[in-house]
């Protein structure tokens, strides 16, 4: 090790602006996540629904030729909203803070003068960017593939429908992503907790009568979906059913969007608190 101490001057005393930390934290998380091979796995999973309409085009016109609209709606609501969205949020969200906790590299970060909130918010922004970067093209490709089937043209109305789903998915990502990020920071084994919360509790709560489903994220995401998307060509029916849906879910789209923003904000705040308060270090185990 060379003795050239004078070459390196001391750091200036003033701290850098908050936004620089935020952007840097997001940039770092983005770069490291995109470089991982496992992100490719997530990309493949996110693009799998595209294959379905493509496969169906191979089948005869008679069997599936008029089904483009129905297939697109089903893929969006059953695959993207109910399966892919929580899965991708779990895949990326749990590891946002959790990866450094698991690999025991978090002391490097916590001994840096970076505001904890900037670190958490920056990483959350990277989650939104990466997951949205997988979901939005996936939705578009699925949309394009479905137009190859009948009864679903590349029209402005259909594009609006696609954008509506994109919006609902992004709002869902906000809620699920914040929840998973908090899980990763708070729990030692967040996968088990995440699986139980997102895939057992949510299913159970939606089946149980009463207001218990208010304690799920899925309720608010589903309430954002276009009402009766398959029959959207009939405006009267659509309006009536939208009202019915509102009564059924007890929340409209606006309230749901607000609820998701509140859920995300509270969970991000909780994550910041956890990162500030938790004593992440391996020494505990070693010393005991």
């Amino acid at each position: 090790m060379s003795a050239t101490l004078d070459k390196v001057e001391a750091m200036p005393a003033a701290n850098a602006p908050y936004l620089r930390f935020l952007a840097m934290s997001a940039h770092h998380a983005l770069v490291t996540t995109l470089r991982r091979k496992r992100t490719i796995l997530a990309g493949v999973v996110a693009l799998l629904p595209v294959v379905i309409p493509l496969v169906l085009t191979v089948f005869t016109e008679g069997a599936f030729g008029r089904e483009g609209n129905k297939i697109f709606v089903m893929l969006m609501e059953d695959i993207y909203v109910k399966a892919l969205l929580p899965l991708l949020a779990m895949f990326f969200g749990i590891m946002l803070i959790g990866e450094d906790v698991e690999s025991q590299t978090i002391p490097y970060l916590l001994t840096r003068p970076v505001p904890r909130s900037a670190m958490v918010l920056g990483r959350f922004a990277s989650l939104l960017l990466i997951a949205a970067g997988l979901i939005v093209p996936g939705v578009f490709l699925t949309f394009a593939a479905c137009t190859a089937l009948g009864n679903f043209a590349f029209s402005a109305a259909n594009l609006r429908l696609m954008l509506h789903y994109d919006g609902a998915l992004l709002m869902g990502l906000l809620g699920y992503g914040a929840f998973c990020m908090w899980l990763g920071a708070f729990f030692k084994r967040p996968i088990i907790t995440g699986v139980m919360a997102l895939f057992f509790w949510q299913r159970l709560a939606l089946y149980v009568p009463g207001l218990i489903d208010f304690f799920t994220i899925e309720k608010y995401v589903v309430a954002l979906l276009p009402p009766l998307a398959e029959a959207r060509e009939a405006p009267m029916l659509r309006t009536a059913l939208a009202e019915y849906q509102k009564k059924l879910f007890l929340v409209g789209a606006t309230k749901s969007a607000i609820a998701l923003v509140i859920i995300a904000s509270v969970l991000i705040l909780l994550t910041v608190l956890v990162v500030r308060r938790r004593e992440y270090s391996q020494a505990k185990a070693m010393e005991s």
């Binding site: 496992r38 999973v45 895949f91 959790g98 698991e102 967040p190 996968i191």
Partner: peptide, 14 residues
């Protein structure tokens, strides 16, 4: 460990 868990769940659930 976490990615291993998520990946297997992702595949099974998907």
């Amino acid at each position: 460990e976490r990615y291993a868990g998520i990946a297997v769940f992702m595949i099974l659930f998907g």
